[in-house]
């Protein structure tokens, strides 16, 4: 079967109990503001990288909160850390630190 990559919605359930939540725990412990997301999509709308390529930081974070980490590394590498998302976030989430922590967690738990 062709691998459509991470951003294509897979035709299956989120098997929450089977997922490895260490990555999420690590991010939440180190950047608690991550919890406050209401999925408004402001970050994705303003994203410099998302303006150029299929890169949805909101969805990525949402999937991470559900324990879905497949393909995360490849996706998160698209971020340029420019900080626009941080400026528009209505919930005051430290989005850049979330990215740093996700990258750190990937290295840690790979």
């Amino acid at each position: 079967m062709k691998d459509f990559g991470f951003t294509i919605t897979k035709d299956r359930q989120i098997d929450y109990d089977q997922h490895d939540h260490r990555l999420l725990q690590f991010v939440l412990e180190n950047e608690p503001s991550f919890q406050a997301c209401i999925s408004c999509g402001g970050c994705t709308a303003t994203c410099s990288a998302g303006n150029l390529i299929d890169f949805n930081i909101r969805k990525l974070n949402m999937l991470l909160r559900r324990g879905e980490t497949e393909g995360l590394e490849k996706e998160i590498n698209k971020c340029m850390l420019c900080g626009k998302c941080m400026l528009v976030c209505p919930r005051g989430i430290n989005t850049r630190n979330v990215i740093l922590k996700i990258k750190e967690a990937i290295q840690k738990f790979r």
Binding site: T9, C43, T44, A45, T46, N51, N56, K59
Partner: peptide
Amino acid sequence: IKSEDTLSGRPL
């Protein structure tokens, strides 16, 4: 205007 259509998961 720039927004994300969060229900389809795509920037709009």
